[in-house]
Design a protein around this nucleic acid. Structure first.
Ligand code: ATP
Length: 740
DNA sequence: CATCCTCACCTTTTT
DNA sequence: GGTGAGGATG
């Protein structure tokens, strides 16, 4: 039996991969390009350690980049080992942040925290820092809270303490950051809370200050495996170093070309110096790509070669050559989105599994237009990123109640919900409570009784009683999380509030809370586990795999994933590469790596698209140049397709036409000619006579009503409201018929 | 104290 | 195009 399993683990790998799995004597660095099976090696290695050496899974620490990746790896390991190895409860295939949280929860007192740690997500951070800045008499209009938080986060990622930052501050902004940082950490501690960065820092602190505790985990984690090592930051590097410093059984995999998180402290040096930091380390290169077609690999390799700061590597495949990459030149982002949605729709009708299609973009904001097109064509899709479930107002409100029940000194939670639903406790009252708490350096709950002069003190006391009642009920220990959520929802009047609002939106919110409830039905978590988990879960973890849906996400989120068909939209200068990185060579190279990551997600096809004009949210449409990365793709591996909707003169087309074989859309070229002759006639003979209110039919959109006319004569444009939305159409081109 | 309105400004990427 | 701060009004 066992030997069979072992063979299964080994035989599905090529010789280099096998070597990587079998080598267990000391530090191991696996350097490899995209799709070469790095993750597969790690997965099989875990299975191998378990099967060959009987290493229980609880002695193996495997760190992945996202919770989703961790879950996937867990599932794959389970599949290889069979369900018999149900060490379910004590599995450590996880992310650095979850690892830190799990450990810190157990030892919070050792670093000056109490039990019941709370994790602050980014909106909690913002409200806390705002509060601090206001206390510091700083105008949050001139100094943006986000900027301060960035400064703090950068400091943390470089292991700089508040004190050091104060000493290093050499201008007033830095001084502000340093002072805010100091206050921020104090407040967090007071609220028994940590932000994401603190999880790592505090774990490090725990390990550094408590040899005995470190030693427990060094013994526990006999093997340390780390995926995506190129995107590890300083604290993460230190944590993995400490954990493996006794036994040196640390196996890491990474690809320097996929380093895309340097902006949040990921340091390439960590992987480049691995052999130096871990003397005697063995390095294995994986060079065969199993994921993509020859063409896709070729294109990606050519693009990434243009990075100067880079070691070249030889990545090859035995897969079929495959199709050329498509590149669609659209008029604007709407045209682009429509085209992408059409293509996808056709592809799905032709039998493609929607789950095997992904649309990738540089910024979250770009998803909206795409979503609209997907909806119009009735294509089911899911979005990674954007607003997470746990970041929705109503969910956070309920969670805030839960936080306050768990931890009465959580002022942020208190302020969030003290007047939701309304209890006639206004800004002034809250301000006074905050001031008092600030003065006395006590949590708000504890200063309430000293504030008898407040007009709405009665409401505040009632509120406190309400919370205390809920806490009492919970502490009795007979309630499940589901019960608690329902009780909060009903007893606080939240449900009533939503009901009375009566809007569609309120209905949705109510449903979301029900969903939160449902999600706790089967969980075994304690209240604090549940709360912190909810802060750690990202949008990536929430998606249900069951449906057949197309995936939309940012290039960053696509890391580590793979799809048959990849649509890479916004392949433009200022977009990819992003405008903010154009002047900074190192960041430009990171953009190129991002492009490389995106392209190498594809197994079968890459579909690029470019919008000739794109409007950045508040601006009007700006002409866009095609991405420099486009020119780095070998010409013979590209099929360029022009949109029918392009203006007669298009800057991208004229820039490309001498070098590239541009396919003029067949329909359009005929139309052009025909229109040209018509045009002359039109000029003389036809006068378009459309007025607001006219009913028209269009072959493309069906029946609609004119809601606006722009221009006149044969150059008239009509804004027409169709069932699926309003369109701007020129009757000259649009073949409209007037319905009398 | 609550609600409605206006105006400014905006996110690049995420655990 | 949307969110949040701040002001005017009930
Ligand atoms: N030896 C092999 N034989 C067949 N298929 C393989 C082999 N090794 C890996 N694969 C497949 O190749 C694909 C890529 O593997 P994997 O995700 O492990 O690569 P990776 O190096 O982690 O990629 P990336 O760095 O791009 O995320 C997967 O579908 C995997 O199943």
């Amino acid at each position: 039996m066992d030997t069979q399993d072992l063979e299964l683990i080994i035989n599905t790998l090529n010789p280099q991969q096998q070597e990587a799995v079998l080598y267990t004597d000391g530090p191991l660095l696996i350097l490899a390009g995209a799709g070469s099976g790095k993750t597969r090696v790690l997965t099989n290695k875990i299975a191998y350690l378990n099967k060959q050496f009987n290493v229980p899974l609880y002695n193996i620490l495997a760190v992945t980049f996202t919770n989703k990746a961790a879950k996937e790896m867990q599932e794959r390991v389970e599949k290889i080992l069979g369900t018999s190895s149900a060490h379910h409860s004590d599995q450590w295939i996880t992310t650095f942040h979850s690892l830190a949280f799990k450990i810190l929860q157990r030892h919070s007192e050792a670093i000056g925290y109490q039990k019941g740690l709370v994790i602050y997500d980014s909106s909690d951070q913002v409200s806390l820092i705002k509060k601090i800045l206001i206390d510091m008499d700083i105008d949050i209009k001139t100094i943006k809270p986000r900027a301060i938080l960035n400064g703090i986060s950068n400091a943390k990622n470089s292991l700089i303490t508040p004190e050091t930052l104060v000493n290093k501050a050499d201008n007033s902004f830095k001084e502000t950051v340093a002072e805010a940082y100091t206050q921020y950490q104090k407040k967090l501690l007071l609220n028994n809370a940590m932000d994401f960065d603190d999880l790592l820092l505090n774990l490090l602190k725990l390990f550094k200050e408590h040899d005995d505790i470190l030693s427990i985990y060094q013994k526990k984690f006999q093997y340390v495996l780390i995926d995506e090592y190129q995107d590890i930051n300083m604290p993460q590097y230190m944590i993995s170093y400490l954990l493996s410093s006794k036994h040196k059984r640390i196996y890491v995999v990474g690809d320097a070309d996929q380093n895309i998180y340097s902006w949040r402290g990921a340091n390439l040096q960590n992987i480049l110096n691995f052999e130096k930091d871990y003397p005697g380390a063995k390095t294995i290169l994986l060079e065969q790509n199993y994921r993509s077609t020859g063409t896709i690999l070729n294109i990606s390799n050519e693009v990434i070669k243009h990075n100067k700061i880079r070691k070249d590597k030889n990545l090859w495949t035995e897969n079929a050559v495959g199709e050329k990459a498509e590149c669609f030149i659209a008029h604007n982002e709407y045209d682009e989105a429509e085209h992408v949605a059409r293509q996808i729709s056709q592809s799905i009708h032709a039998g493609t599994d929607p789950n095997e299609i992904a649309i990738l973009y540089r910024t979250n904001a770009m998803s909206r237009v795409l979503e609209e097109s997907m909806m119009q064509l009735g294509i089911k899709y899911k979005i990674f990123g954007g607003l997470r479930f746990y970041e929705r107002k109503e969910i956070k409100d309920i969670l805030a109640y839960m936080r306050l029940i768990l931890n009465p000194s959580d002022d942020i939670a208190l302020i969030r919900i003290i007047n939701v639903p309304q209890r006639k406790i206004g800004k002034l009252t809250i301000q006074k409570l905050m001031d008092k708490a600030f003065e006395e350096k006590k949590p708000i709950m504890e200063v309430i009784d000293t504030m008898t002069e407040l007009r709405s003190i009665q409401s505040v006391q009632t509120f406190r009683q309400e919370i205390n009642k809920l806490r009492l009920a919970w502490d009795a220990g007979t309630m499940t999380l589901t019960d608690l959520i329902m009780k909060i929802f009903e007893d606080t009047g939240y449900k009533k509030m939503l009901k009375e609002e009566g809007t569609q939106e309120a209905q949705t919110r109510s449903e979301n809370i029900q969903e939160l409830c449902a999600s706790t039905q089967e969980s075994q978590y304690t209240l604090e586990e549940f709360l912190s988990l909810s802060a750690l879960l990202t949008s990536q973890d929430e998606a249900q795999e069951s449906d057949s849906t197309v995936t939309l996400m940012t290039l960053h989120s696509a890391k580590g994933l793979e799809y048959d068909h990849v649509y890479l939209v916004g392949f433009e200068e200022k977009c990819l590469p992003h405008v903010q990185s154009l002047d900074i060579p190192t960041e430009l190279e990171e953009e190129r790596r991002l492009c490389y990551v995106g392209m190498t997600r594809a197994r079968i096809s890459i579909n690029l698209s470019v919008a000739s004009y794109r409007s950045a949210y508040y601006e009007k449409a700006n002409p866009q140049d095609i991405s420099r990365f486009f020119r780095e793709i070998p010409k013979d591996l590209l099929n360029i397709q022009l949109s029918k909707k392009l203006n007669t003169f298009n800057h991208i087309v004229s820039a490309l036409k001498d070098e590239y074989d541009l396919k003029i859309p067949a329909v359009r070229s005929i139309q052009l000619v025909r229109n040209k002759t018509h045009y002359d006639e039109d000029d003389k003979n036809v006068s378009y006579n459309y007025n607001v209110g006219d009913i028209v039919t269009s072959p493309m959109f069906g029946e609609g009503q004119v809601i606006k006319t722009i221009g006149q004569g044969n150059a008239i444009s009509l804004q027409i409201k169709f069932p699926q939305g309003s369109k701007l159409i020129m009757p000259k081109y649009g073949k409209l018929t007037k319905v009398e």
